[in-house]
Write a protein that binds this DNA or RNA. Structure first.
Length: 568
DNA sequence: TCGTGTCGCGCC
DNA sequence: AAAGGGCGCGACACGA
């Protein structure tokens, strides 16, 4: 990414689109004027054509990174940067700062549809979109022009340009991480399963340990036909024995005293391991010693990524992280941003006290040191409560003290909550806006406070308003944190490519895992120190790009390990 | 038998 | 008085 504000200046674009039998390649200068006649390339010749043009460091423009880039990576071709038009369109269509643009005013088109699973859009095809309306096939060049126009006219073009560049770089990184895969030792994973569950049983049969626990539970609960996988059955059995519980959630079970509780909790834990990361998961997701997760950039309204396909890279349980082992002679460099969201809040709000609390590393300890609360646990629960909108229990009680100590930070989230409660829209630091509440929500609000409204109706509407307020409150922080992470990842991706320039992706240091505020790089051992330095440098750079000069620190916890589970 | 809704758990 | 954000997924429950 270039320095802020000059993302597009002097930039050459190469627009790729699907055409019969191949792809159309169009080279453009920074005012979208053609630099060469457009040409047709067969798909099997595409990687070579891209590799040649890549030497000029263009920005590739295409409808969908997840369609174009994997086939380039398979052929050993990497690109530095791109514009993922579909991802960028989603941001621009919804953003408050581009609401007056032609792009935002246009009726929904194919650019608003979710990405097709497979195959890619054929040229001149007609597309079904949400409401059943039909739109003409999308032209990426026309869309690029609309997007540039929208960015240029937005309230803060450099922020929006940064967001779009970071979003697109994230899409490249997602494809690269999937291609490279996370090193995964199936033998270690199998050993974990064997130790915890017993030998692998036939399909549909409970593993030995689970079967034994199930028998014990049936005996203790005096329910011979109990299915411990059925929460309603378990709940009925426990209540029959006089236990005063309303659900079978683990945290609720832990509150009560009964001989059935310990084996039940153990059963739930192991059943979870089996269903989420058991032998079937291993077979479906790990091949050739690599886990290839499917990330979905922009898959969450806040801008966070989602993951899909049963893989679940973003939900990788700690229990199985011992199976993540670097190749011989390689290391995993594991970096996570410490207390990212509170620090984002401090920077967003310009709260000097909170910035100070985070200086010199543990922000929660800093909050304790300031005298606002008396221990680290309180500091954490209070901060989370502030960002999530909790008002009950300990965190609710601590809120007034937090608000006194950090008035600007707390005011920012309170304001965001009030905007949401009124049905308004909030935006992240770089300009991603929250969705509008549904028509049903607005209708409930409109109808709930008049004279004809019943008490129950009013209560429900008020509850929904608060709920949407908690969403917008969190949106600002979570979404801005996601932007920071994207900037970090984008910067790091460039830095890693520069360590071993020209080498294939998996021959040098490369990203293998992203989890919201954590990056993992797989690297030849000799580069590990350099990778750590680049992680720290790009984290600081991400903060500078987003906030300019700020006194808020964004420290990382970095570990160089052979085994992922040794990182924490 | 299928799709849909809910629960509960894991991750951040 | 009650009031905790965002996800994905598997299993169960239930109704068409």
């Amino acid at each position: 990414m270039n320095a802020r504000g000059s993302v597009h200046t002097g930039q050459v674009f190469v627009v790729l689109s699907v055409s019969p039998g191949g792809a159309t390649v169009r080279e453009l200068d920074d005012s979208s004027a053609p630099m060469a006649p457009e040409r047709q390339v067969r798909l099997d010749g595409l990687p070579a054509a891209v590799a040649m043009l890549e030497a000029g460091h263009p920005r590739w423009v295409w409808d969908d990174t997840a369609w174009w880039y994997p086939r380039l990576l398979e052929a050993g071709v990497r690109v530095e940067r791109c514009i993922d038009l579909r991802l960028c369109h989603a941001i621009l269509r919804n953003a408050v700062s581009t609401a007056g643009s032609r792009l935002a005013a246009a009726p929904p088109s194919a650019w608003d549809a979710p990405r097709p699973v497979e195959p890619p859009p054929a040229p001149d095809a007609l597309f079904e979109i949400d409401d059943g309306a039909v739109a003409p096939a999308p032209d990426p060049l026309a869309e690029l022009v609309l997007q540039q126009e929208a960015v240029g006219a937005s309230a803060d073009p450099s922020s929006m340009a940064l967001l779009l560049a970071a979003e697109s770089a994230g899409a490249l990184a997602a494809a690269e991480m999937r291609f490279a895969g996370l090193p995964w030792r199936a033998d270690i994973h199998e050993a974990i399963l064997g130790r915890a569950l017993g030998p692998r049983p036939a399909a549909g049969v409970r593993p030995r340990v689970l079967a034994e626990l199930a028998d014990r539970l049936r005996a203790i609960l005096e329910t011979p036909d109990l299915n411990p996988d059925s929460p309603p059955e378990v709940l009925r059995a426990l209540r029959r024995l006089g236990l005063n519980i309303s659900s079978t959630r683990s945290w609720e079970l832990r509150e009560v005293e009964h001989p059935a509780i310990a084996p039940l909790l153990e059963y739930k834990k192991l059943a979870r391991l089996l269903s989420a990361n058991g032998w079937q998961w291993l077979e479906a997701n790990v091949r050739d010693g690599r886990f290839h997760p499917e990330y979905v950039p922009g898959g969450v309204v806040t801008g966070r990524w989602a993951s899909t396909g049963g893989g679940g890279a973003l939900q990788l349980p700690r229990q199985v992280r011992t199976a993540v082992v670097a190749d011989d002679g390689w290391r995993l460099v594991v970096a996570d941003a410490s207390q990212l969201e509170p620090r984002i809040l401090a920077a967003l709000s310009g709260d000097r006290g909170m910035a100070e609390a985070g200086a010199g590393h543990d922000l929660y300890a800093g909050i304790v040191a300031s005298g606002a609360v008396s221990d680290r646990g309180q500091a954490k629960v209070a901060m989370l409560g502030a960002m999530y909108g909790s008002t009950t229990g300990e965190s609710g009680r601590l809120m007034p003290r937090l608000a006194r100590a950090y008035p600007r930070a707390i005011a920012l989230v309170e304001d965001a909550a009030r905007v949401g409660e009124r049905g308004g829209v909030v935006s992240t630091r770089l300009g991603r806006s929250s969705p509008r509440p549904s028509a049903a929500w607005r209708q409930a609000q409109a109808g709930a406070y008049g004279e004809s409204a019943g008490d129950a109706e009013t209560r429900t509407a008020r509850g929904q308003a608060r709920s949407w307020g908690r969403f917008t409150r969190n949106f600002v922080v979570q979404g801005s944190a996601a932007e920071w992470a994207l900037c970090w990842m984008a910067g790091l991706r460039n830095a890693l490519a520069a360590i071993d320039p020209g080498s294939p992706l998996t021959a040098g240091p490369h990203l293998v895992l992203f989890m919201h505020d954590e990056l993992v790089v797989h690297t030849p051992a000799r580069h590990a120190e350099r990778v750590e330095a680049e992680l720290r440098r790009t984290a600081a750079e991400a903060a500078r790009l987003m906030f300019g000069p700020t006194s808020v620190e964004f420290p990382l916890t970095v570990a160089v390990v052979e085994r992922y589970s040794d990182a924490k």
